[in-house]
């Protein structure tokens, strides 16, 4: 199994080191030909506007959309924004997931926070009982899900922060900034 990490901008190295801890082969994706031979892809945190512009500039939009039809993709924060259909403003989106996302929904950096989330699917898939410590940084929320997309996690006021649609996964928070590998393990279960 080989997992690519979109390396246009953002914390792709952090995802790669999490995958290495799980003994998964990885590679960096910057151009369409780098998607060849991959079994899944992670779109990291970063600035969604920068990632979108670089994806357009280097003809990655169509290749990524095609890749997502058959393969697992997980977007964290900026990656979740990039996977969504609608963010209420004009910037390049893959539109692979039936989710509506709002950027910077919790405020500016001083409002960035950590909290524990109860995610039953994650506990079940990894055979663990502990809540998941999630790190939110200028984070987006998932305003709504539609079609086959399902809610995976919400914060205490009910705002959605993780969703799944078949082999596609979106999280507002950053599992790659923690020492908890459970979310990466969960993503690996979505790969055929």
């Amino acid at each position: 199994m080989k997992i690519g990490v979109l390396a246009l901008q953002g914390d792709f190295a952090e995802h790669i080191s999490m995958l290495k801890r799980l003994n998964v082969e990885t590679s960096e994706v910057r151009l369409p030909e780098h998607l060849k031979g991959l079994d899944g892809l992670i779109i990291p945190g970063g600035e969604s506007t920068t990632i979108g512009k670089m994806a357009v500039a280097y003809n990655l939009m169509d290749s990524l959309k095609t890749f997502g039809q058959r393969h697992a993709i997980w977007g964290t924060c900026a990656g979740a924004i990039f996977l969504s259909k609608d963010i209420g403003r004009d910037q390049p989106l893959l539109g692979l997931m039936d989710i509506k996302v709002q950027r910077n929904a919790f405020g500016r950096q001083i409002d960035s926070f950590e909290t524990d989330l109860d995610i039953p699917e994650l506990k079940q898939a990894t055979g663990t009982k502990e809540d998941y410590r999630a790190v939110f940084i200028r984070a987006p929320i998932i305003e709504s899900v539609s079609g086959d997309a399902k809610i995976l996690a919400s914060v205490s006021d009910g705002r959605i922060v993780a969703a799944q649609q078949g082999h596609l996964l979106a999280t507002s928070f950053h599992p790659e900034l923690t020492n908890d590998t459970r979310f990466h393990k969960y993503f690996l279960t979505l790969i055929d």
Partner: peptide
């Protein structure tokens, strides 16, 4: 649900989001 802001992880983390950028 306990919420913590301004942690070292949060502070370092935003810089990690800027990596590979200008």
């Amino acid at each position: 649900m306990e919420v913590k802001t301004g942690t070292w992880t949060e502070k370092k983390g935003l810089a990690q989001m800027l990596k590979g950028g200008v």
